[in-house]
């Protein structure tokens, strides 16, 4: 078996340790002797998803996110939407998550069109939502821990489910108790920290989704997750008290 991961905009969306998510997926595939290649698609490069099995997109600084919006329009957006409808696995974090939505409205009313791949939108607020984040994710039967830092409040539209229910922190918008988004094989979250290394169950769930899309039912061999579990449990315990 083999997975080809496309890392979109590693050159600009690299703010909160996002490369750690790609590294985590790579290692957990390698440790199981599953082949893995990562193709980085920076600004200005064509997004050809034909040979790709999954896509990762992270978050960045506002300054750089403005740089890429022009690049994302048109063909890249069309390819991304088609791939998502086709069932390709996507993991999107923070700014990348927002970009999958329809638009971002700044707190003073300026509207910025995004890809519209998912029925969700984001409204900017003056206060940033910053701090440790924990949410319950039924799909993996575990709590997910991370750190959030965003001023955008995201609201899910029809057909889009949350990834989990907030236990500690703000999540999508600080008011409806929802965190992240699920649509077809798209996983989106505000949690960095980074997300996957200390949430190995979530990482494996995403990898399994991508592998099954390609190969049908797949059984992932168990790994020694003692380091991962220790980091996860430390934060889970701390946020419970």
């Amino acid at each position: 078996m083999e997975l080809k991961i496309c890392h979109l905009y590693p050159d600009v969306l690299n703010l909160y340790g996002d490369r750690g998510n790609v590294l985590c997926m790579r290692r957990r595939l390698e440790w199981r002797s599953i082949g893995v290649t990562v193709e980085e698609v920076p600004i200005g490069q064509k997004l050809d998803l034909a040979g790709c099995d999954m896509l990762f997109i992270g978050g960045g600084q506002d300054f750089e996110q403005e740089v890429l919006l022009e690049d994302l329009k048109g063909e890249k957006t069309a390819n991304l939407k088609a791939a998502i409808e086709d069932g390709m696995t996507v993991l999107a974090i923070c700014g990348g998550y927002q970009m999958l939505g329809e638009y971002y409205e700044t707190w003073d009313g300026t509207k910025c069109e995004f890809t519209g791949a998912l029925a969700l939108y984001t409204v900017g607020s003056k206060e940033r939502m910053i701090g440790n984040l924990m949410f319950q994710c039924r799909e993996i039967g575990s709590n997910v821990v991370g750190f959030e830092n965003h001023s955008g409040k995201t609201y899910l539209g029809p057909g889009v489910r949350p990834l989990g229910t907030v236990l500690d922190g703000f999540g999508n918008n600080g008011s409806d108790g929802r965190e992240g988004a699920r649509y077809r094989n798209v996983y989106a979250s505000y949690a960095h920290g980074c997300l996957l290394p200390k949430n190995p169950l979530l990482c494996d769930q995403i990898l399994r989704t991508a592998l099954e899309w390609k190969y049908g039912a797949v059984e992932l061999a168990p790994l020694d997750d003692s380091f991962e579990t220790a980091a996860h449990d430390y934060m889970e315990t701390r946020l419970r008290h």
């Binding site: 996002d18 750690g20 750190f147 830092n149 920290g193």
Partner: peptide, 9 residues
């Protein structure tokens, strides 16, 4: 810094 995600960078 309360956010330690930078160690992955």
């Amino acid at each position: 810094g309360r956010d330690i995600s930078w160690i992955w960078d």
